[in-house]
């Protein structure tokens, strides 16, 4: 067993070393893979707030990922076609500015998370899983039939959006942007887990009756966690769309929600670096095994099976044992 802190530092160093090495070797595709891992890790870190800290098994987090994606797609689409949006009599111009897009993604996914959370949190356990899944399907089919923005075919955005002072089409610069946001999200997760809110949320996951008995409302705690979680995943959705310069309804698919859960379980539920480790492994396997066989998901499934059966704490649990509460 090694201290979790050491593993965390090693993982972060590896995460930055790979694209640095790729830059030197002039392998831009590897940088893009690292960027993909960073964005998936950001989305999964969002899920880790709900799933890891709050114990909420959401099979609907693709909703927020998709909303983030479409926030980018819709705004950039109007900017690239020079047609303003018509919103209840108002005309709103599109934008290619990433900070604006991110803000819209955060706000829109936050609002969606409030609505989905308010209804879903009336249930728990398997019913919660089912109701979040149902909401996910609603958004998925809505996106499919949303002809104005490509329907089933999705939307292509020809040029990556802008960030002041950066050339976002340069892979390493875009990686840096995504990695910075991921690091900020990890910092938020780390502080959140130890904050009064995180302590109460953890207790609400373990013993809701106790939380009520000390005068707090466990459902409200979980709702706030769900909203923060959804916003983070929404931000990742906007970046993901920018990475591919493409949005489509598959961002809303329940398979993606499941993939996010897999990432978190693979890395370690509730652990700071769990999502990044999970995303790193996922992207690596996808790339390495995907080259060898089209059936690489079978191997991923087998790895997941081993993790769930023999290493409940995921990769972090395998190396570091159970989470140690800080004194």
């Amino acid at each position: 067993m090694i201290p979790e802190r050491h593993l965390n530092i090693a993982v972060l160093m590896l995460f930055f070393a790979v694209p640095a090495w790729a830059l030197i070797m002039d392998e831009p595709f590897t940088i893009t893979l690292a960027t993909r891992a960073a964005i998936l890790a950001l989305a999964a870190t969002g899920l880790n707030i709900a799933l890891g800290l709050g114990g909420l098994v959401s099979l609907g987090h693709a909703i927020f990922f998709g909303i983030g994606g479409y926030a980018m797609g819709v705004l950039a689409f109007h900017a690239q076609t020079y047609t303003p949006m018509q919103l209840g009599g108002f005309e709103i111009a599109g934008t290619k500015s990433m900070p604006v897009i991110w803000l819209v993604a955060l706000v829109a996914s936050g609002i969606a998370a409030v609505l989905v959370g308010l209804l879903s949190l009336r249930t728990s356990g398997v019913y919660f899983i089912m109701i979040t899944l149902a909401f996910g399907q609603m958004f998925y089919y809505f996106a499919i039939s949303w002809r104005a923005y490509g329907g089933e075919d999705g939307l292509s955005i020809y040029v990556r959006n802008d960030f002041p002072g950066l050339n976002t089409l340069d892979p390493i610069q875009f990686f840096g942007l995504c990695a910075t946001l991921l690091c900020l999200a990890l910092l938020v997760f780390w502080r959140l887990a130890r904050s009064p809110f995180g302590l109460a949320l953890g207790a609400a996951r373990q013993v809701p009756q106790r939380v009520e008995t000390v005068g707090l409302d466990p459902v409200r705690l979980k709702l706030v966690a769900f909203v923060l979680s959804g916003m983070m995943t929404g931000l990742a959705g906007a970046l993901f769309a920018d990475l591919n310069r493409f949005v489509s309804p598959t961002m809303f698919s329940w398979q993606f929600s499941g993939e996010l859960i897999v990432l978190v379980i693979l890395g370690g539920v509730g652990r700071l670096m769990g999502p990044l480790i999970g995303a790193g492994l996922f992207v690596t396997l996808e790339h390495v095994l995907g080259d060898i066989t089209d059936f690489w998901h079978v191997i991923l499934g087998a790895i997941l099976l081993v993790i769930v059966l023999f290493a409940r704490g995921g990769v972090v649990g395998l190396f570091c044992g159970k989470a140690r509460p800080d004194a």
Partner: peptide, 11 residues
């Protein structure tokens, strides 16, 4: 009555 603090560690 103050669980709504998100940054400073509780301890």
């Amino acid at each position: 009555g103050k669980p709504w603090r998100f940054w400073r560690p509780a301890l």
